[in-house]
Simulated scan of single mutants.
Amino acid sequence: MKIAPDWLADPAAQRVCAMLTKAGYQAWFVGGCVRNALIDAAASDLDITTDARPETVTKLAKIAGYKVVPTGIDHGTVTVIVDGSPFEVTTFRRDVDTDGRHATVAFADTPEEDAKRRDFTMNALYAAPDGTLRDPLGGIPDALAGHVRFIGDADQRIREDYLRILRFFRFYAWYGDPAQGIDANGLAACAAHVDGIDGLSAERIGQDMRKLLAAPDPAPAVASMAACGALLRVLPGAGPDALTVLIHIEEEAGLKPDVIRRLAALGGDPGRLRLTNAESTRRAILRDMDSGTGEVAYRHGAAVAIDRAAVLAASLSQPISQGDLDAARRGDGQVLPVRAADFMPALQGPALGAALKAAEARWIASDFTLTRDELLT
């Protein structure tokens, strides 16, 4: 069986492979790019694996005139840069010891050995430079069926790295078939080892959760996370129900997937996700149920106001109203028709600030219709 994605014809990628094969070593494209080629999805990057040791890859690349960066030399990875394009080249590996977060690896000689240390069968796929596939562990039928399945014993795979719990749900969100349902053995293993999430760094948790919530429809995966206890480990106090409604609202309103909007719908404490200050502020605005949609649009713009209206509607299990959409458009770009100078010199200091604030509140309550003269009366 062969694949023929556009990236396979990339001259730079083929030159990296030729650098290895002409010297008598193996070269295989591996992982996500191969999986995505099978299911006709775009590939974000190209990873290459080989039986050549890192020092050999480095030597061959320098002889060929390519720049080499030792990005993960201890784990067998060097980045070869050809015509400005980076390619991670990793030596076949096998795990020697793991502690749930890090692995001690030894180099291996075949794709079969390398495949056994990977997480899911659909990620243990290899493609030769001519597109010929090599599937040591039955990943092709799983990829085509949307079946996210751990390699070998799910409990063992998770004990090797507890981040694989979150990866399991992330890959289900992106590549799983909701009609088929989540893999029962995998879900049971996640539930049995959910305590392991507590030992993961915020950076690792945040990266995987962001990728999960960016999927077209992450609701089934998040519901499964809640069912096994994983959701409360990463978002204490969160619940999945409003997210399910929000996805339907997004589809009906033509809203693109947005991680912060979806986090706002989930609720809970996002402390373990390491949000930026700007993201935390926006999330707080989207969860503010006291201000009207027009006021939110006036203060933060129509896009934020519509997002906030969508989150509110989702929390109430109802569609976003046309009234909210209209209010967001009316409030966007409005400019308060009075200034502090209009109240001076009669008012100064705190009294001036209070008068200006009261005038703004009246103006917002009037749906931005009161004029300057009316506000000064």
Rank of each mutant, 00 (worst) to 15 (best):
W7D: 07
D10C: 08
P11Q: 03
A12G: 03
R15W: 00
K22I: 14
G24L: 10
Y25T: 05
A27E: 09
T50Y: 04
D51M: 07
P54A: 05
P54L: 07
V57D: 00
K59P: 06
G65N: 04
K67M: 01
K67R: 10
P70H: 12
I73A: 14
V82P: 00
D83Q: 08
G84E: 06
T90A: 09
D99S: 03
G100A: 15
T104I: 15
T110H: 03
P111V: 15
P111C: 05
E112I: 11
E112C: 07
E113N: 09
A115C: 03
R117E: 00
M122C: 15
P129D: 01
G131P: 10
G131R: 06
G131H: 07
P141T: 11
A143I: 05
F150A: 02
F150N: 04
D153W: 01
A154S: 12
Q156Y: 14
Y162E: 04
R164G: 05
I165G: 00
L166D: 03
R167V: 04
D177K: 03
P178R: 14
Q180W: 12
G181D: 05
A188Q: 12
L200D: 09
G206Q: 10
R210K: 15
K211I: 15
L212E: 02
L212R: 01
L213Q: 12
A214N: 11
A215G: 03
A215T: 04
A215L: 07
P218G: 06
A219G: 02
M225A: 09
A226N: 12
C228K: 05
L231W: 01
R233A: 11
G237Y: 08
L243D: 10
A253W: 12
L255V: 10
K256A: 15
L275M: 11
T276M: 10
R283D: 01
R287H: 02
D290P: 01
G294S: 04
H300Y: 11
A303V: 10
V304R: 07
V311L: 03
L312M: 08
L312H: 14
A314W: 01
Q318P: 08
L325A: 06
G331K: 02
L336C: 11
A340N: 04
G349H: 11
P350M: 05
P350G: 02
A354L: 13
A358Q: 14
I364D: 02
F368S: 07
T369D: 13
L370E: 09
